[in-house]
């Protein structure tokens, strides 16, 4: 219990540090969004004071001491008030992120978890039957697929399954004729749209999990406790899962934590290729349009999601490995 409380405390502390850094960094940078806008305008000719005032009024210029700004900022973070997007004016940042987040979380999150679970199970099987076809096939295909660049797999799938055979829609998260919400037609349509990006992520990340688990498990299979379990006549399923795999999965959990943390921010390429309206797509738009409020909110979210994922994995680790609890 103390272990978990300590982890929780550490989590709260790092989260606070991340939020504060997110506040400080833009203020440490020279210039301001208003300066940038004015600089762009001034290329076309001198900018008069009225224009400058108008730009500053539109973008907002910080007032008050840094401390009071910080206090306001903390309040805004808590109430999820991240301001108004420049690009998608007058939508608020919160509403933009709120509409993009579910798609990314469901698509990338589920697929990442699925890839980890499937890859780990296949890895266990491959190690248990090492040297046989059950080992060679997944290991070879896994490393083959993992060697493909993300977007290349995506383009291939898009071309063959999307255009040539027209099995799946090629872009977007749902068709315009459905109404988003918890209704049958919409959900079926959303799933059809998610298939291609999901398969892309699954194919490219599966190989890593298979190889990682297989190699770790081959290591634990050589451990004395596995030999001793066999000598005691335990069923091979018990030996494989509770003795060898249970120990082999521990180092892979760390990798899983990183992958989970990357769910929110790391799907940029795939979302871009499939024009999937998730967080990655939004981030790309925010960066290309220099949409500072949107960027700031997204960066904060990405940081926080990495922290949450790490906390989850640390907790899991504590449950699975009694040695870390001390």
């Amino acid at each position: 219990m103390r272990y978990f409380l300590r982890r929780l405390g550490l989590f709260a502390l790092t989260a606070w540090a991340a939020i504060t850094l997110n506040f400080l960094l833009p203020r440490l940078m020279p210039g301001s969004p208003a300066d940038a806008a004015i600089a762009r305008l001034s290329q076309n000719g001198p900018v008069d004071a009225a224009t400058r005032a108008a730009v500053e009024a539109q973008l907002g210029v910080p007032t008050g001491s840094v401390l009071s700004q910080y206090w306001d900022y903390l309040g805004n973070v808590v109430t999820l008030d991240f301001g108004v997007s420049y690009t998608f004016f007058p939508s608020t940042v919160a509403s933009l992120v709120g509409s993009a987040l579910p798609f990314t979380l469901v698509l990338v999150g589920l697929v990442t978890v699925a890839a980890f679970v499937i890859g780990t199970l296949v890895g266990v099987l491959a190690a248990w039957r090492r040297g046989t076809r059950l080992d060679a096939l997944p290991t070879l295909t896994g490393s083959f697929l993992a060697a493909f660049p993300y977007f290349w797999t995506a383009l291939l799938l898009l071309f063959f399954l999307g255009y040539t055979f027209r099995l799946f829609p090629t872009s977007g998260a749902y068709s315009p004729y459905t109404t988003p919400g918890l209704n049958g037609p919409f959900l079926a349509d959303a799933v059809a749209h998610a298939v291609l990006p999901a398969v892309t992520i699954l194919l490219t990340s599966l190989g890593g999990w298979i190889l990682g688990m297989r190699n770790a498990m081959i290591g634990t299979l050589g451990e004395d406790y596995v030999t001793f379990a066999e000598a005691n006549g335990l069923r091979s399923r018990t030996v494989a899962l509770r003795y060898a795999a249970r120990n082999a999965i521990l180092p892979n959990l760390t990798g899983f934590g990183l992958a989970l943390g990357g769910v929110v921010g790391g799907s940029l390429l795939v979302e871009q290729v499939f024009a999937y309206p998730g967080v990655g797509y939004l981030l790309y738009n925010a960066v290309t349009n220099q949409d500072y409020p949107l960027m700031q909110a997204l960066f904060l979210m990405i940081t926080l999601s990495v922290l949450v994922a790490n906390f989850v994995v640390d907790t899991l680790y504590g449950i699975l490995d009694p040695r870390t609890r001390r």
Binding site: D224, T227, F228, A229, A231, L234, T238, R242, Y243, N247
Partner: peptide
């Protein structure tokens, strides 16, 4: 039955001693 050389590592580090006995009885 066999008792191994490095008895130090003959037990699964993530299972309690009681679980080891349960496994043997269950098997």
């Amino acid at each position: 039955a066999m008792v191994l050389q490095s008895g130090m590592n003959a037990l699964n580090p993530v299972r309690t001693v009681g679980h080891h006995f349960d496994d043997v009885f269950a098997a």
